[in-house]
Design a protein around this nucleic acid. Structure first.
Lengths: 230, 230
DNA sequence: ACGCCTTGTTACCCTTTTGTGACAAAGCCA
DNA sequence: TGGCTTTGTCACAAAAGGGTAACAAGGCGT
């Protein structure tokens, strides 16, 4: 297993040190910076696999810096996890279209942090994950980016593909719209919950052609479930 | 397995020594020089299979020397891997059109270095790999630099040939534009991602003459895939 | 030096995708 | 059944993503 470079940008010494330790312990290779300028210098040298970024920073704020990074093609693909202090409204973090991939609010448990980092790395394709997922006669291949029922190819849009991917890796369990948004769209985008319904509808429409619209089930008052059995 | 001569050009004694050891251990035959002049003398004597070159050198900088080498037909085909120290901006390395085949930033792990060396040797055809690759009625011959469908020769440009080579050795898998750039153009060139589209277009145009433009498939939002099946 | 080929880049266009509001339909409970 | 809540569905507009042609620069051979 390869080791990932993680850039920590955090002004408080105590937290920065703690993060370094936690990440090292978890087998990552962290590099730390105290502000955006310093972080930029590190970036100039080598692109990390992920950036752990404090939302509030002296000088250029973390949010502002993240926004800039996401505009540059060279940096765009580096996933960013924001660290938000308790009291900084979660909504704001979601609302501002920063393009962060996730956020974690302080205080957080090391375990949670590591889990989120792994999740983001996996989602951005840096950790391989399972290439083929089979469920009944459904087959989803992330390498080939193909989805099929039996030997028929399904034509799905990128979002539909991700949604199916999530469902097939988490079958037989109900997920709320919020959970689906977090898992499929990422925790820091803000879109209406009802939009999920529309995507569910679109998925069902495709599955309908194969008489399999029953795979996606509504659980009234809770959300949706993907399951082979009704 | 044959053993490759690798010329190390590095001014710091400690690093030079370390490189010698690491390469020997890995079964290569390294020769070392401390600066460009010394390296040039070694070159005059015998052409190595690959040059491992420090980007910053006293006297003529590594970058400058590499650029000169790439202008001389005799040396052009020797692959060069640049060693960049932390703090030397990656952008510059990519941006300046040095013509290096790859770069590795210090500090690097021996494992990573060896892997990159192997990759570059393979890409430049020094490690034989497969001379002939067949995929359906497609045939690509790396030795003769020929590509054919059935018994018809295809006329492709060098870049198109490399792209086809990569595709035929990695079929049925989606690659992002970035991945294609890294794999086909090499990690140390910086070109626009959209340029890929243009090359794909050119490839398709050629394949079109044989009704095979469907071999190169667009996967919206992700990249391209080469596959015999739709 | 000249012309041809190769290659990277850009601009423009078209298609697909996607989020959203509006309204109908369905479900639930008293 | 009636009224309220939760979903389903549709149409639309904006945005994203790609396809393509045209252009310019560089390289190469003659």
């Amino acid at each position: 297993m390869s080791s990932f470079n993680i850039l920590i940008v955090e002004d408080e010494d105590a937290i920065r040190g703690m993060l370094m330790m936690v990440l090292e312990q978890a087998g990552f290779m962290p590099i730390a910076a105290a502000d955006a300028e310093e972080a930029q210098k590190i970036l100039d040298d080598k692109l990390p696999d992920l950036i752990l970024l404090d939302w509030m920073l002296p000088g250029i704020s973390g949010a502002e810096w993240a926004r800039r990074l996401k505009k540059e093609p060279i940096y765009r693909d580096i996933p960013i996890i924001l660290l938000t202090a308790r009291g900084e409204e979660e909504d704001k973090v979601r609302g501002l279209e920063i393009g962060a991939d996730d956020y974690v609010s302080k205080p957080f448990s090391p375990k949670e942090l590591i889990a989120r980092i792994r999740a983001v790395l996996r989602r951005s394709g840096k950790i391989p994950g399972q290439a083929q997922i089979t469920l009944g006669d459904l087959m989803l291949d992330t390498e080939q980016h193909r989805l099929s029922i039996g030997d028929k190819q399904l034509e799905v849009s990128p979002t539909e593909f991700r949604l199916m991917h999530f469902f097939m890796t988490h079958p037989d369990k109900v997920y709320s719209r919020t959970q689906l948004l977090d898992q499929v769209w990422g925790r820091s985008v803000y879109i209406e919950e009802r939009t999920i319904d529309v995507h569910i509808r679109r998925l069902r429409k495709i599955l309908e052609e194969y008489g399999r619209e029953d795979l996606v089930q509504t659980v009234r008052g809770f959300g949706y479930r993907f399951s082979l059995v009704d």
